[in-house]
Amino acid sequence: MIRTWLAGTLVAATAVISVIPGSPGFAADPGLDPCEFTSGSLTSLLPPEALTVHLAVASPYGAVRAAATTAINSPRGQIALKEFIPTGWCQATDRAEKDAAMNDHIIARVLATHAYETSPWVWSAANAARTASGAEKEYFVRFGLDEARAADQRARDENGANAAALRDFDRDYVALMRDTAQGEQVQIAAAYALRRDATDSDIVDFYTYAWSSFAKLDLERFQLTTAEQEMRWFAAVDRLQKAARDAQTAAEGASGEAQKALQQEAADKWGQVAAGAAPSASGWLTAKQTADAQARQWSAIYQLALRQTGPNWKAMSKPARNNRDAWERDSRNARDRAAYWEQVVEDARAAEEDIRPAG
């Protein structure tokens, strides 16, 4: 089951662009593909260097982060950066979605969400797959992960220490996560651990790997959604901004009554820029609220895990800390993106006011 979610859910997340819950609608046409832009078309909206630095830090794909870093460090300077946005970004994203890159991504996620002390078979198999051949990596993702997980479960069942350490408090906390976890995937994992025919072994599995694995899916889905939304917002607002600049240039080159009409048209187009960018700012503010709620919950889980004893909670202390740190980082990024889009709105409104004819 878990392997299906690790692979299938992420692939679905890359293919379907969902709106952040509670966020305003897109400023962009939902059918518009950011990869259709010509190289350097976003320059007027955001310097390629700034967006490339953003993707080098915030993209959930290692291939995209590596390509962005390469562009930043290229001796070709601005030329490399302009080629990266959007052409290099689209190519790197496409590569990341290929099977080989996806296998690497899943292996890295397994290593990030499993500890040798609590899942030695899974961790060892994933660590070996990390430097294995392409065929061996594919085998691990398709079959080896389930085999290693079954071996860990057999070992835990035979040892009995994890099951013996379970308390009513631990079972109740799984139910709490099922009902109140900030992430949908964590809720799904908790519900599965508490299904009608579940046993104590399923509760142990939740603590030792399912909780952290599905939490990683929640984080990646958030990052993929916001990254795709950002590119679509750039697409729509850049198009509006170019039209406004063209209209302003035309107005500045005219005179008399014709100029007044063209100024009115240019002012209206700058108003469209402001209206088009406003959902981007509010969308990032909503994303920040999502990240803040996740960070608070994972901070509480981390503190709770440190106070608990036994092997089950021990498995969650490091993932909980890592999740807290990751969501706090994404919150800061969302804050910065909201501030950027608020400035775009403010600049557009100022341009609208400056060029609109009196009376």
Rank of each mutant, 00 (worst) to 15 (best):
M1K: 15
I2R: 14
R3F: 07
R3G: 15
A7C: 04
A15C: 04
V16L: 14
I17N: 08
S18R: 06
S18T: 04
V19F: 00
P30R: 04
D33S: 04
S39I: 12
S39W: 08
A50F: 04
H54S: 08
Y61C: 00
G62Q: 09
T70G: 11
T70V: 14
E83A: 14
D94R: 05
A96Q: 14
M102D: 05
N103C: 02
D104Q: 06
A112D: 15
A115H: 02
E117I: 05
P120T: 07
W121E: 13
V122T: 14
W123H: 11
A125H: 14
A126V: 05
Y139R: 14
V141F: 01
A150Y: 03
A151S: 09
N159G: 14
A161K: 02
N162S: 15
F169A: 14
R171L: 02
V174G: 14
Q187N: 12
Q187T: 09
D200L: 15
Y207H: 11
T208N: 07
S213W: 12
T226K: 00
Q229S: 04
R232L: 06
A236N: 01
A244D: 03
A251P: 02
A266L: 04
Q272I: 00
G276I: 09
G276F: 13
T286E: 10
T290M: 05
A295F: 11
A300P: 02
Q303A: 10
W313E: 03
W313Y: 06
A320M: 05
N322Q: 13
R324S: 00
D330W: 01
R335D: 15
R337T: 13
A339V: 07
Y340W: 13
W341Y: 14
V345G: 10
A350G: 04
I355N: 13
I355L: 09
R356C: 01
